[in-house]
Design a protein around this nucleic acid. Structure first.
Lengths: 201, 201, 201, 201
DNA sequence: CATGAATGAGCTTTCATTCAT
DNA sequence: TATGAATGAAAGCTCATTCAT
């Protein structure tokens, strides 16, 4: 990936334009696979020129990353927001579950984009500090649960995380792929109960 | 996707060449993302000419699909093989779980290829008859379990499948991404117990 | 060549700014080929903004032309200045020869600019009234010489001009390209003698 | 000038294609200035694709250079050919004069290309071994003439060369620019006489 | 006026795909 | 079949020129 062009400092960028571009890009990336998408399509959808895309992001990959990060950052914010004030252990995890389902219910295009244009291998790397903090927070909560004897201590903590995310993402993903209408968040209760049974002792 | 070149009928193809090409392709697709891979790389790795790739597969996408299908076909076969003679309901599901973990333990490159070069959106579509049969079989088994009151009947049957696959694939995937050594199949018992608790009543 | 920006009438332009810009432009055009030069470079060298360049000249080509014309206009003025009061035919031509050599000796950057950034095809067209008058004057003088039987009448008058300019420009040019130090004007005597022998009967 | 792409070894190139491309390129470069010409125009004129141009030449500059070199190489060959068997000093120089005039008479497009698309600054550098040998040969002949007391010894030998080339090129150039019909070579006798008077003692 | 952002055009590169030998 | 050349498409980059503040 060549990238000699320094991406402009944010100071030289109009946030409204960024917003518009990323919104358009998400729509396009949601509809076709990453390498089927041309930057011309995105430029047209965002009503800006090709060069503006390069000026703001530097490359197609970087634009995708920005869309992804921006979306996940929103998710992370929303998560912290919703967790505030919830103390019960079970309730916290339940809330996490709900926030994610709700997020994809509200942002199906973001979900489609992840399905169509993000290789799973990218999921792990390429994360913003915000997301890393969230993961660490999550891991520490799960680890704590194991220590308190509430959660299953027979497996490594990341495995618990895998149960959580694996189910969450698969369910959200397949919901979109199957073209189902209706909100997954509505089934949150029964789904979380199942997951809770899996990870508790 | 232009495609004027007729792909040879399988009858006129040398299975050994197919084997060699696909094996090489899996190695290459496992190491980089799909669109970072060039067909030249694959041709070199398979010690054949570019033209042969086109003769046998017709396109880069088709080659990837062939690798994927071939791998999954093996998995399906192995699955049916192992399920033979197991009657207990729990044991059947447990076996399915084990076969998948074991498959990725034995074929890490196949797993890496899926992570690096297959968009999740592809997972659903683009399946061979063998895989569809397997999924249908699986769904019918799970549905049966719900009818018998063993499995949770509060959710649609495909949701149970999502729990299964979501956890399985996520665990296999993250095992590879985290670069862990050791076989996941060794933890099969405790992992399946967790999953079992999730999906049973 | 798009050009919506109205160039300011000269009346509203600051001659000092024009001066500064053109001086800077000549330096830059002298060092690299025309299309290797960016207007940013010139703006920086002239310590003005890009917009000012457009306001004053309208385009890159026009700026180059202005530099060229300005320089040649100086040459023309100087020429007329020096010819005043010289009556002998030979002396007039000799003076012309000297003034040109002297001009490039004094303005090597102007010479370099012509070599690096002006296509020979441009030399003929694209001239100011002042230069045309000079050429016409020159041609009439040479024609007169032919009529008087002093200059060779076997060739068309413009051919005599070609001898004159061809030798003059080539010598000035190569002096610069060969990186010689020292003034060509110092060799004026012997050089003009040679040329004189060529064009006289 | 970036140029990471190694130009293919000539072995991988079809001489007929090179021929066709260069012929087309000369026509196009002859009609407009270098940077007004797009490679698309040339590709269309040569009835090949853009990529073939890059495969064969690597860059627009390189293509122009190739056209130039190819033309000059022909001139050099023709020159050596015609000089063979001529012993008289004056005749040799006369022949050189004629060959150049004749060359531009026969290849007016080559001349136009030089006028329109080659900066004089390029003339000196960027030469092939063949041309350098020719220049050296020419210089040694002129130097010899000076030693023998035939040519003017008061100026450096390269100055004699400048007289020669300056007049030759200017005349050929202006002939084209003035749009004159008829061959310059026909006036060879009288023109060379003039030049001969200039450079002899 | 100056500044900075935006645009269109064209060079350059890479690669899937096709064609010819 | 293998090889090498050709093509089209799109990424990536630079720059003249324009627009808005």
């Amino acid at each position: 990936m060549r990238n000699g062009t320094a991406v402009l400092p944010e100071s030289r960028q109009d946030p409204a334009v960024r917003q518009r571009i990323e919104w358009a890009a998400v729509q396009v990336f949601a509809d076709s696979e990453f390498h089927q998408v041309t930057l011309q399509q995105i430029a047209k959808a965002a009503q800006c020129s090709l060069q503006t895309l390069y000026r703001y992001y530097g490359s197609k990959e970087a634009l995708l990353s920005a869309c992804l990060h921006h979306g996940l950052e929103q998710l992370a914010e929303r998560m912290l927001d919703h967790l505030a004030g919830i103390d019960t252990f079970r309730d916290r995890l339940s809330k996490v579950f709900w926030v994610v389902l709700d997020f994809f219910d509200r942002n199906p295009q973001m979900g489609r984009m992840m399905i169509n244009s993000v290789y799973p291998g990218r999921w792990g790397s390429d994360t913003t500090p915000g997301q890393q903090r969230l993961t660490e927070l999550f891991l520490s909560v799960l680890g704590e649960g194991q220590e308190q004897g509430i959660l299953n201590g027979q497996v490594a903590t990341p495995i618990l995380l895998d149960f959580f995310y694996g189910v969450l993402l698969r369910i959200s993903q397949m919901h979109l792929l199957r073209g189902r209408t209706g909100r997954m968040a509505d089934q949150h209760g029964v789904l979380f109960d199942m997951l809770w049974r899996a990870i508790t002792v």
